[in-house]
Nucleic acid binder design. Structure first.
Lengths: 250, 250
DNA sequence: CACTGATTAGTGTGATCACAGTGAGGCTAT
DNA sequence: ATAGCCTCACTGTGATCACACTAATCAGTG
């Protein structure tokens, strides 16, 4: 990821630079790990070593440590009783629980978005909906492009709820499902996207007409659809065995 | 809080001690800060210095640093553009937003608790309900005892939803409202508890009879009641002015 | 050959130091 | 007296080291 060794600002001639909002190295590592998590690059069950991640990314232990701590707090990573850190393994039971919570909370967000959205936000939503449609119905459908557009669509909606607390919670939830949905939904995402397309259309239309109940229902159906798709093509563990022992942790 | 300088286990004679689950110093600091936050000891707007907290608690910077990082992640503390850390100031706007989210999410938790609760959990819930009633209707009502029982009651219910994700979210939410409700609800908590008592009774009865809808409604009414109470005896800032300038963070 | 034992590499946690950036207080020059 | 500059105390961030604990390797013995 090439961290610029330091922010070497030698001399500021006339203008007084204000490096206030500069991103911390820890922030960069955090963002990087989030990406690796969301892309499935970090597989469930895989162990993380602070030192190794630090060496890989070319930084010291400290920023990695802090980034991992953050990820543990929002349940994107878990810490075993040995104090070892790994990306949580998702059982079907946990996945079901997570999905039901997501349906309720993100459905609520969609409902509020239908109520509080501005016209500008509606435009952005429509924009992302066609982006998703294009990515899926294209002649050579791009899986990663579709997932990106799907995520954008959802989060523009959640942001349009104008409830920052809710937005934060949905971010946490997506961080947890990320490793799963990106894992083995190869080109088959196109097949599963049939119902997604329909529900997205319903969803956007409901948000446009400020129909909160329908917006909630459409989003719930969308989530449920992809969740069932994951449950079928299941790479999930049926029950949480004491140890996976299948990790390639070094 | 008196941290034992270190876990000095000199020699373990015959039994092989397994100090696996031992609480980290960081954990202890985190718990301590949570308490200070929930008790209102750390007032909104107050600034936190890693070194000063470390010196006060008699530890080095590191555990404090990690504990504060965790609290920032779940929005119990906020980090200003100056990188300064303070406990967030709560505006009426933010409080309203937070309350609406809480009503929805914690209402959902109550609903699920009514469905999934075991008989043992029901007993615990009843137990905490009479504890709260006792604390409030006592001849010399104890504010801190009432608040403790109230929190216990709520979280036993949330735990009884058997949705760990939901439990985690409610913990985050309570961490944010903690500094407010404990701030200036002195003996007046008894007055405001009138409606709380009624709703608690409804809530517990609904959970007993597995009436999810009523459970949700009762909990929503409970939350709304205390929220309105806070909004009236308001110590909240009307709008988020650039700086409070009233902190004693020297 | 199988099993226990010690040694070693590797882990997360905590402490300490270095550094750049920030803000306030006091000084000087106008 | 006031505006501007400088100094200094203090901040969070990052790096490095020390330590206790864990897991796995390899040696020794049955």
């Amino acid at each position: 990821m090439s961290i610029p060794s330091a922010s070497k600002i030698s001399a500021r001639p006339t203008v007084r630079r204000k490096p206030l909002n500069r991103a911390t190295i820890s922030d960069q590592i955090y963002a990087q790990l989030c990406l690796s998590l969301a892309s499935g690059e970090l597989a469930p069950g895989e162990r993380l070593s602070i030192r190794k991640v630090a060496a890989t990314l070319g930084v010291s232990m400290m920023p990695v440590r802090e980034a991992i701590t953050r990820l543990i707090v929002d349940n994107a990573l878990e810490i075993l009783p040995n104090k070892a850190v790994r990306v949580p393994i998702m059982t079907t039971e946990i996945f079901r629980e997570l999905t039901s919570v997501r349906i309720h909370i993100e459905g609520f967000a969609a409902e509020q978005a239908a109520i509080h959205r501005t016209d500008e936000e509606l435009d952005l939503i429509k924009e992302q909906e066609v982006a998703f449609r294009d990515a899926v119905t294209s002649s050579n459908p791009s899986k990663i492009e579709a997932l990106r557009a799907n995520k954008n669509l959802h989060f523009i909606i959640y942001r349009a709820s104008h409830l920052p607390t809710l937005l934060r919670i949905t971010e946490m939830l997506w961080l947890r499902v990320g490793p799963i949905i990106n894992l083995d939904l190869d080109s088959s995402v196109v097949q599963g996207a049939k119902t997604a397309l329909a529900q997205h259309a319903r969803l956007v239309h409901a948000i446009q007409t400020r129909d909160a109940a329908t917006a909630r229902d459409a989003l719930a159906a969308d989530l449920l659809g992809t969740a069932n798709f994951v449950l079928e093509s299941t790479r999930l563990r049926e029950n949480n065995l004491p140890l996976p022992l299948s990790d390639f942790g070094h």
